[in-house]
C-alpha cells in the first residue's frame, strides 16, 4: 500500500515571522476543554486543541487486579494512550497499541504517578484512558492536559494539575505548540509537562537540535503558554459549579 506523501516537497514552515497557519512563534492553537463527558466513568474530559480531538476518562480508585499488581503502600496508576485508526489526516492507522503508544502510555502514567496523591489509596488501581480521536501533532501533550481535567473531575486528589505542551525549533526560531506538519519538518520537538505550582517538570522528551540558549527560551515559552493552558483547565472544572457561588453570594 502506498502512503500519503505529505512531506514530499520542501515546505517553508515560517515566512516573515508567521507560521503556516498564521501563528507567531509564541502562539498556541485555539483550544477548549469540557469536563464530564463519559457517563460511566468516575471522571472524564473532552479536549479540542487545534485539530486534535481527545477524550480522557478515569476509573477507580478500585481494588488493584490482578492482585499481584497491587502495591500495599500506594495506588497503582495504569494508563493507556491510544490513537483511533481514523484519527489521522492521512491513511487508516493500524488498530491497537504500537511501540509509540506503549511509550507514550508509560511517560503519561509517570506524570500522574507524581501528580496524584497515590499514598492515599494503598492496594488500589487508578485507570486513565486517553483516546486520540483526531490527531494533528502534539497529541501526547493534549492527552496529558485533558487527562488532568478528567482526574480533577473525578475527585481523585492531586498535589497539582499538570499541563503539557511542546516546543520546537523552526529554522533556529523557537516556537510553541507544533502542529503535525511542523512536527514532521521542524528541527526539534520537545514535549514537556509541568506541575505549575512549584514548576516541577514531570515529562521531558526531546529530539532534533537545540542550543542551550534555545532550550532555555523554549522552557520559558512553555511556562508562559502553560499559564494560559492551566487557566483553561481550571475554567473547564469551575464553570459547572459557578452557580454555587451565586447561591452563597
Amino acid at each position: 500500500m502506498k502512503s500519503d506523501d505529505i512531506m514530499e516537497e520542501e515546505i517553508e514552515l515560517m515566512k516573515n515571522g508567521k507560521r503556516l497557519d498564521g501563528r507567531g512563534p509564541g502562539d498556541l492553537r485555539p483550544m477548549s476543554i469540557t469536563a464530564n463527558v463519559i457517563k460511566n466513568a468516575n471522571g472524564s474530559a473532552y479536549m479540542e486543541w487545534g485539530n486534535n480531538r481527545i477524550i480522557a476518562a478515569v476509573y477507580g480508585p478500585s481494588e488493584a487486579l490482578p492482585k499481584h499488581t497491587a502495591n500495599p503502600d500506594k495506588a497503582v496508576v495504569k494508563c493507556r494512550y491510544m490513537m483511533a485508526p481514523f484519527s489521522s489526516i492521512s491513511e487508516h492507522g493500524r488498530p491497537g497499541m504500537n511501540r509509540r503508544a506503549v511509550e507514550i502510555s508509560k511517560v503519561t502514567r509517570e506524570v500522574f504517578e507524581h501528580a496524584i496523591l497515590v499514598d492515599k489509596f494503598p492496594g488500589c488501581e487508578i485507570n486513565i484512558y486517553i483516546e486520540i480521536l483526531q490527531s494533528d501533532g502534539g497529541t501526547r501533550a493534549a492527552g496529558i492536559t485533558c487527562a488532568a481535567v478528567a482526574l480533577a473531575s473525578s475527585g481523585i486528589p492531586m498535589r497539582d494539575m499538570p499541563y503539557s505542551v511542546s516546543a520546537g525549533n523552526i529554522n533556529e526560531t523557537v516556537v510553541i505548540d507544533l502542529n503535525m506538519i511542523e512536527d514532521m519538518a521542524s528541527d526539534a520537538d520537545m514535549p514537556v509537562a509541568i506541575l505549575p505550582r512549584n514548576n516541577e517538570v514531570v515529562l521531558l522528551q526531546m529530539d532534533g537540535s537545540f542550543t542551550k540558549e534555545q532550550f532555555d527560551s523554549a522552557m520559558e515559552l512553555i511556562r508562559k503558554s502553560g499559564e494560559y493552558i492551566s487557566n483553561l483547565q481550571k475554567k473547564a472544572l469551575k464553570e459547572p459549579y459557578e452557580k454555587i457561588i451565586d447561591r452563597y453570594a
Binding site: 463519559i38 457517563k39 485539530n51 481514523f86 484519527s87 491513511e91 483526531q134
Partner: peptide
C-alpha cells in the same frame, strides 16, 4: 471528526458510539 473521510457520533439513550470512515 473532519480528519476522517466520514464520521458520526451517535447517542442512543446513554450509549454513545463514534464511527469513523477512512478511505485508502
Amino acid at each position: 471528526m473532519p480528519n476522517a473521510e466520514g464520521s458520526a457520533d451517535v447517542q442512543l439513550g446513554n450509549t454513545r458510539v463514534l464511527v469513523g470512515v477512512k478511505i485508502d
